[in-house]
Structures are given as structure tokens and as C-alpha cells.
Design a binder for these strands. Structure first.
Lengths: 350, 350
DNA sequence: CTGTTAGCGCATTCAA
DNA sequence: TTGAATGCGCTAACAG
């Protein structure tokens, strides 16, 4: 049922032998340097390639050119299932598709902590370049980035712009702060004066920025209170939010750090009998497919995660070809997704 | 800000020169063939490695050993965002983590159709082995698998067991049929006699198997009717289900091909005023995180997608090392996830 | 237009 | 226990 022996793929030399030309000529034909090869010879070579079913063996080319045609996506996340967040998934899909256009492959690597990352460095170091999805507080991220930067590979930060001390880096991120401001404005315009911002205990740039945006916009117009709760236990998040809403009945809006938290808030509101949006405004962030599972439909902000992926890939390939990054980075805007969870507040006790 | 010139990594020869030994000695030390090297020399070599910050360059090793230490996950799916389904995402995470233990990397490649796949063959062919996530009807999958098999790479099918004509293949799948039977049994035991099975228009093995399981279990006890609807448009799915429930009021259970469809059924039931589970039983399949967003909590079946990933990786690495696959494949069982959407039916008109 | 030379980094083989 | 030679497949540079 299984066939152990590898058939030993044909090489340039095999083709050259069969076509009766030199190895270099075959190489030129394969690589489209057709201007240097006569039509006649080209035909013979093509025929030989076809009969031998020859395919370029990237191994040899890699060694010769000191390039691997492989780019990594390093996802720093304490969860073993590091691709659970649709954000990283969309980035990966975007990168993979974009890279394929240039003949590159995407290698996906998750690292749960610094030790884990260090153990994977040998494998990572053989890539041509990397995109990095950071995690944690600023200091931790800087340390992580530095470890990776020491490999000497070009790198693009995804969702972060801390390229300050990095010698060969660029970044791609989105307007989390502006997006959160916009959501906060919507909420405030509906009359909210006490906002509860819900985010994970562990943070990453997007979360920090969203909270900052909400607070900035609310400044002077409303109170903002934050609670942190692990996103891994949805039931617990609902519970925590419900408890808080009961204890703090003056809270008239819940802004989730992402849609998961927003949906949890909807569940919490439902459980304690608070009507959304009449008595409580709720927002999320990201707008991935599962947002539609919520009822009422969550008002949110669409994150162009897939586009972040394609842009990261473009930058990395350009960097490899031109030898330098475009200065700075690229910032994508986010798009409001209107739902049914923000509207004029009719508070019982005013 | 950017530094174009690559620092040119140190090679075995550099280390050998500095340590005053031969290249082979360094190679032996690096590869832990320490029995062949005296303690004295070993120290010198280690020191040289440290000062030069030497790391094995896999390019050279790859060429020499004719191995790339890279394994591919080929996701055949018409969607450009081929990683949108959490199932493939969990498989990818499981594979990536497991492969890392053996020093392998995971390359993720999506292909929207046969043409797209063919264009990516050159890149795929340089991998050591592949896992394939099939899509479509049996005939289409066989054709796709054959194209990949022609590369001569060992391959593991994920979620499918059509390894019949494939010379060097194994498979990893889960008990979709048995799982669906179990869900159907629960529904039937609650008194359901008219089951509506909802699945995507395009199918893949899991979907086919789940429908088959539901029908098999219902055979003789209940009618089963299937409707197909693109999963990409959730709103539309809800609409279609709601319409059908109105037109066919005798339907007393909806089984979703996955949790997305199950949740859509919950929305539909809510919209038309059918109580779940008293007047309508609803089930899903997969049990990924977003299932908890549904209200009431969807009764479902947990798919061990992450474990499928680790097992696929294990099999591929073992195949590379031993030269042959373990015969057959591995089948994982699924686990019931009790929710609040299946219970005794109290039908208005009996 | 085509062929020759050389060497990328590594590990197997064989010799010392 | 250590070293030297060899070649994996490919392409830049140059020679013809």
C-alpha cells in the first residue's frame, strides 16, 4: 500500500543530457532567459523537460542564491491553539495567498512564550523574512521582537508599530484607536455616560489601543471603567459582566475589546433583563463572521485583517527584492459595522 | 532605518577555522555525534560556535540530505479566505506545534480550484510531505488528490479516507457519521419525526458523512429532508431555514451540518416564534468556541480537529523517518456537547 | 548563442 | 579520534 523509495527526481543535468545541451542552457530556458537561447534548442529542452517531468528543485537554487522562498508568520500567543483568533487566521490567509503570487510559501509558527520561541529559532532562522504577531505589554513585545531581530531577518510587525530599535523592520497595523473613538462617539451620542470597557487580562496592542481610543473620546463626557477577564472562558466573561452590571446599575454602555466580549455583554444583559440598546448600548470590534451569530446584531468595527496580511507579504517580498523596506509602515482604516446594539438610551432612572 | 546588506551567516567552515579543527569535527559536534569527538576538542568547538553565533544553515543540509524539514498543509477550498473555517485552523495549529517538536515547519497553502492548485505545485513539490484538506464531491476530491500524489510526496488526507488509488498515503479523520447518528438519536428520542438537515451547497466529506449518519439513524423512525444553502451568507441561511419552517410546520427538528447552521436555525426559530427545544430541536456539529455565542446553548458534537492535526503531523514525520506509513489511518471519535436545544418536544398539533 | 568553471553549506564515505 | 575528498542541484560570471 505504501511505496517507501523516493523515485529520485530529475535534475537539470538529466534534462541537459537528454536534450544534448549544457546544464546552463537548460537553466536559462527554465528561468525564462529565453533571449539567450535559440528557438530550436528551446524546443528540444522543453521536450526533454516534459518527458522527464522535470521540476526545479528549490533546494539547489536555495543554496546557490542563499534564499529559501519561504516567509514565516510568527504568532506570539500563550494559547497552544494560537490560531484560534480569527484575526491571525485572516492575516495568515492573506499572507499565504499574496506570497504565492511571488512563488513564496508561508510557514506558520506559534510560540507560547520566550523559551518556546527560542527553541524554534533554529527553524525560523532559515526563513527569508518574517511577519510577527506580537503579544503582551510593550516591554515584553520589545523583548520578543529583539530576540527575533537578532536573527538578522527582515521583519514586519503585524498590528504593532514598535520598530524603533529594530534595524530591519517595517509594520502593518490598523486604526484601532480611531475605530474605538468612533464607536465611543456613537455610544456617547446615544446618551451613554458610564461606559464599561471589557478586555482580556493579557493584552496586546490592539486591545490597548482600543481602550485608549474609547477613553480618549469619552474624556470629559463620560466615565470609563475597565474590567479584564480571560477570553478563554466565555461563560465566565458573561458572568463577570452580568455581576458588574448588577452592582453598577448606572453603567449604560459596554464596549467589548473585540466581538467576543461584545457578544458576552449581550448575553449578560439578556440574563439580567437589561434591554439592548434601549437600556444598554453594546459594541464590539473586528466584525468577523461569527458576529452575525449575535442577537441583536452587534454594532462593531470591521478590521481588515486579510488586507494586513497581503500588505505584510507585499512589504516583505519588496524588501527582499529591493534590499530595503519602504520607510515607516502602513496603517489601515477600519469600517463601522452598524448593528442593533447602539441606539437612543431610555434609562429607567435618570 | 533599514539595513540592506545581509551579515552573511557563519558556516561550519568558519567555525572549523576558528576552532582549529576540520569541518567534519564541527559537524559531528553540532549533530551530537559526540562519541566521536574528544572532550577537549568539543569544548573548543563549542566556544567557537558561541563566539561566531553559529547556527546550522538548513539550506546546505537540505541539499545534502534531500530533505527540507518542511511539511505542507494544502487546504482545498473555493474561498479565498481558506482559513476561515475553525476546523482547518485547529488542524493547522495542531500540525504546526507537533511538527516543531521534530524540527519541521508547517507551510500553509490554500488552493481555490484545480488551476490554482496546479500553479502552486512547483512550490508544493519542494516539501517533504503534505497533509491535504479535501473539498467537494468524491470524484473531484479523487482528482485533486491524484494531482498532488503525482508529485511523489507522502501525503495524509485530513477528514477523508479515499487513499485507495494513492501509492503513498494515509489518512486521519473523525467519526462524523457516528456523531451525527448520536445527535439524531437524541433528537428522535425527544419525539422528533420530521428532521430538516441543513448543509452547504458545496460539500466536503464531513458534511456528506454527517448527513448520511443522520439519515441512517432516522431511517424508519423519522423523515429527513435536506436543504442546501451557502454558508457564506449567514443572513440568507437564517432566511431559508425560517421560510422552510413556516412552509413545513411539521418539521420538529433542525440538524445543522455544523454549528454555524445550527445557530442559524436558532435565529430562524426565534424569528418565527418557534420555541427551542419545546417546539423544535436543534443541533450543530464541531463545538468550537463560537458555539457558546448561541442562545440557548447549542447541542453539538465536539470535533477533535487539533488532535487530527497532531496525528497527521506524527504520521508524516514517522513516514519520512521509517520510509513507510502505518497501514490504514486513524479515526478519532467525537464527543457529545450537551446544550439546551434538544429536549422533550411539546408539539402544538399532534 | 552556448559551454565551462566555480562554489553556495552540509554530511556520507573513506582514509589516516 | 580526526581529516580530506566528494557531490547533492543550482546559477553567476565569464569564456568561447
Amino acid at each position: 500500500m505504501t511505496k517507501p523509495e523516493m523515485p529520485k527526481r530529475s535534475s537539470l543535468r538529466d534534462v541537459a543530457l537528454l536534450a544534448g545541451v549544457s546544464v546552463m542552457t537548460v537553466s536559462n530556458v527554465v528561468n525564462g532567459k529565453t533571449s539567450r537561447v535559440s528557438e530550436d534548442v528551446r524546443q528540444r529542452v522543453r521536450a526533454a523537460i516534459a518527458t522527464l517531468n522535470y521540476r526545479t528543485q528549490l533546494r539547489g537554487r536555495s543554496l546557490r542564491l542563499a534564499r529559501d522562498f519561504a516567509i514565516g508568520l510568527i504568532v506570539l500567543h500563550p494559547e497552544r491553539r494560537f490560531l484560534n483568533d480569527p484575526f491571525s487566521t485572516e492575516v495568515a490567509a492573506g499572507m499565504s495567498n499574496q506570497l504565492a503570487l511571488d512563488g513564496y510559501g508561508l510557514m506558520v509558527i506559534g510560540a507560547q512564550d520566550l523559551d518556546d520561541l527560542k527553541g524554534k529559532l533554529p527553524r525560523i532562522s532559515q526563513l527569508d523574512a518574517i511577519a510577527v504577531f506580537g503579544f503582551g505589554e510593550r516591554a515584553q513585545r520589545i523583548a520578543d521582537y529583539q530576540v527575533l531581530a537578532d536573527l538578522g531577518l527582515p521583519m514586519v510587525l503585524v498590528g504593532d508599530d514598535l520598530i524603533g530599535g529594530l534595524p530591519d523592520a517595517s509594520f502593518v497595523r490598523q486604526e484601532n484607536e480611531a475605530g474605538a473613538r468612533e464607536l465611543a462617539r456613537m455610544v456617547l451620542d446615544c446618551g451613554a455616560r458610564h461606559i464599561l470597557f471589557v478586555r482580556p487580562i493579557d493584552v496586546w496592542p490592539a486591545m490597548t489601543q482600543r481602550e485608549r481610543g474609547a477613553r480618549a473620546e469619552a474624556s470629559g463626557r463620560a466615565e470609563v471603567e475597565t474590567i479584564a477577564c480571560s477570553e478563554l472562558d466565555f461563560v465566565k466573561v458573561v458572568e463577570v459582566i452580568a455581576d458588574r452590571l448588577v452592582q453598577a446599575p448606572h453603567v449604560d454602555a459596554v464596549m467589548g475589546g473585540n466581538d467576543q466580549y461584545g457578544i458576552a455583554a449581550l448575553h449578560a444583559a439578556h440574563r439580567i433583563g437589561r434591554k439592548v440598546p434601549a437600556e444598554l448600548a453594546v459594541t464590539g470590534f473586528n466584525g468577523f463572521a461569527f458576529r452575525q451569530f449575535s442577537s441583536p446584531l452587534l454594532t462593531s468595527m470591521l478590521s481588515p485583517a486579510y488586507d494586513l496580511g497581503t500588505e505584510a507579504a507585499r512589504r516583505l517580498v519588496a524588501r527582499i527584492i529591493t534590499g530595503a523596506f519602504d520607510p515607516g509602515g502602513k496603517v489601515f482604516s477600519v469600517t463601522p459595522l452598524l448593528g442593533q446594539t447602539v441606539g437612543p438610551l431610555h434609562l429607567k432612572s435618570a
